[in-house]
Write a protein that binds this DNA or RNA. Sequence first.
DNA 1: GCTTACCTGTCG
DNA 2: CGACAGGTAAGC
Length: 273
Amino acid sequence: MPELPEVEVIRRGLEPLLAAKTFAAPRILFAGSIRHPSAAQFRRRLPGRRIDGLGRIGKYLIIGLDCGELVVHLRMTGRLVFLERGKPPARHLRAALPFSDGSMLYFSDMRKFGGLWLLESAAERDLTGLGRLGPDIYEQVDRHRFEVLMRSRCRARLKPLLLDQRFVAGLGNIYVDESLFRSRLHPCRAVSTLSREEIARLYEAIRSVLEEGIGCGGTSARDYVDARGEQGDFQNRLSVYGHKGRLCNCGTAVTRITVAGRGTYYCPQCQKE
DNA sequence: GCTTACCTGTCG
DNA sequence: CGACAGGTAAGC
């Protein structure tokens, strides 16, 4: 479900709620969601560790601990919801992580793709996939660096490249389609054919789309909810994603094709190849 | 690059 | 019933 804006909204929401909390004994309902160490070791090692900050790199959430860190990736349908008290999520609960004060952090995940890693130190991050990420598109890539990066990959096509987390980290299917629409670039466009101005336009489109996504509290197209279980609002502002047949401002119908194995929405009039 | 696999659910 | 879903890793 979540791309960079959704993970960032969760991070910002959880940060004040989890500040200085100490984990108690967790309940693991689906061991496969615990990627490292074993579920048994995870149960044994988590209690007593105190939270000292929340970070994010790409789509990974990093819960910093006094000893090590708890890394979370939500993949398609993962949810991380904090509750002071009250009933756990009714469906697809995979892990319940209580704190010493009785409050709870719930991880639920319909499709079971998401995962949690308990690391003893940041040196173990390679266990998670974090080590393979390119620079975070929101925090670490300015306009100049984006152009340098693009110029290094001229044989690629735009959408597959932007989705590649080794190239830049954080963009997913929704925000790539919206960014390409906003910059009037075709998803299959060869990077080698882009002018300097087009690269700059794409960069600004990505920035503004991510900012707006975060400002709206994320996109709840299907499953996404924030740290308090509330839906985002950006789904109401999507120009093309999920809107096959809807008329663009130019009067042309939004088209759906498959690119990089993903459903891809664009305006064939505004986004010529 | 592309395809397939991982899972469970919804929609047409 | 098949197609598709916010992601990624593995294997051509």
